[in-house]
Design a protein around this nucleic acid. Structure first.
Lengths: 203, 203
DNA sequence: CAAAATAGCGAACAGATGTAAGCTGAAAGA
DNA sequence: TCTTTCAGCTTACATCTGTTCGCTATTTTG
């Protein structure tokens, strides 16, 4: 890669990093300002356009990167789980670790899922769908779940875990503990219920 | 009430109505502008301050009103249900009707639940908690559910229904139908699973 | 080595935003 | 009836926003 393209990539990264860095509990993508992001990245506002057409384009890139981060992490978590122990429990733990160490990335996904940009909503939902599909496959393969039940179950699991994650963001450690225990009960309910529905469906 | 206070209430209402009216799929509370709201309400921007200290105060009022609307509707739905038929099914139908006829109010609650204002998040979560508590009571009283299971079950129900509502917003009628059927399966899973956990817990 | 391409810059503009200060006319209170 | 109160107005200001234009310096290309 030429010295020029290299430098270009560097400041593109700087822009993305600056944008991620400005996310917080009280700051979402939609109220990032082009000028502020450029300032933190150390370039003139007008140079922004050399890298992204729009703040929307920057935002989409952020959603994609955030989703990727999460997916990679979960993949690792699943590998770790398959070396012994409950897959579901391991997945939850991995997910909660993600929220704990990347709260702003999680907030990003959470918010844009119901945000004002259809493109963002679509992008986040595609990420969520990935999870559901992976779990769906797992349930069909390893638990011999009927396809319709497997999908419904997978979706319910993901929705509950996601929602708990969101709630955890505003809680202290002790409250999180209670939340996590409740979540496990809920996931067990779904597992048992799915079992039961599958059996009654075959009679 | 004096003719003066009456008029004041009228324009306060006009402000709130204008604000609600400007909500849409691509417009949330946080990107309403004081000036635009005032314009639509037919008053000068500076007169806004005679009614609300802030846009934040306006927003909190909107969240409260939105929550109230939803709660009243669900109360009616429950009454209708108790005259025969499944309570859960009736609740879902009522909820879906709410989303269908007040999509912007639902969007409001949905978004601010994960929004950038801690005050808003708190307000919405209180509303959601109301639901959970009501369902919790119902499950303990009518289904003899153990308290810890009842709460977990109630929460899971509400989370799934809420999440389905959110997803429904971007779907057409046919897709919504499939969504609703999946939701019912999921709620049945939870009901059965809760049953099963309760029984196994008493052995 | 000459010519073309381009990342980054500064200056500048038009528009929007929230909000402060002070006035006015009509209602409320004495 | 006279005085006080106050919802709403106009004017004005400072600040921030995104974006256009033209320039420069450096790398890339032919």
């Amino acid at each position: 890669m030429g010295i020029r393209a290299q430098q270009k990539e560097r400041t593109r990264r700087a822009l993305l990093d600056a944008a991620f860095n400005q996310l917080s509990a009280e700051r979402s993508i939609s109220n990032l300002s082009l000028r502020e992001v450029a300032r933190e990245a150390g370039i003139a506002p007008t140079s922004f356009y050399r890298h992204f057409k729009d703040m929307e384009e920057l935002g989409l890139t952020m959603v994609d990167e955030g989703g990727l981060t999460l997916r990679q992490l979960m993949r690792k978590g699943r590998q770790r789980a398959e070396e012994g122990g409950s897959v579901i429990r391991a997945s939850i733990e991995t997910f909660m670790e993600f929220i704990d160490s990347n709260p702003n990335v999680f907030r990003l996904l959470l918010r844009e899922r119901s945000g004002t940009s259809a493109a963002f909503r679509g992008a986040v939902n595609r990420e969520v769908r990935h999870f559901i599909d992976e779990l769906d496959h797992y349930l069909q393969a390893k638990a011999n779940r009927r396809p319709d039940l497997a999908y419904a179950q997978a979706e319910a699991l993901v929705v509950l875990v996601f929602s708990s994650g969101a709630e955890a963001l505003d809680l202290n450690k002790k409250e999180r503990k209670a939340l996590a225990e409740r979540l496990i009960i809920q996931l067990r309910m779904i597992a048992k219920g799915s079992d039961s529905l599958q059996r009654s469906g075959y009679e």
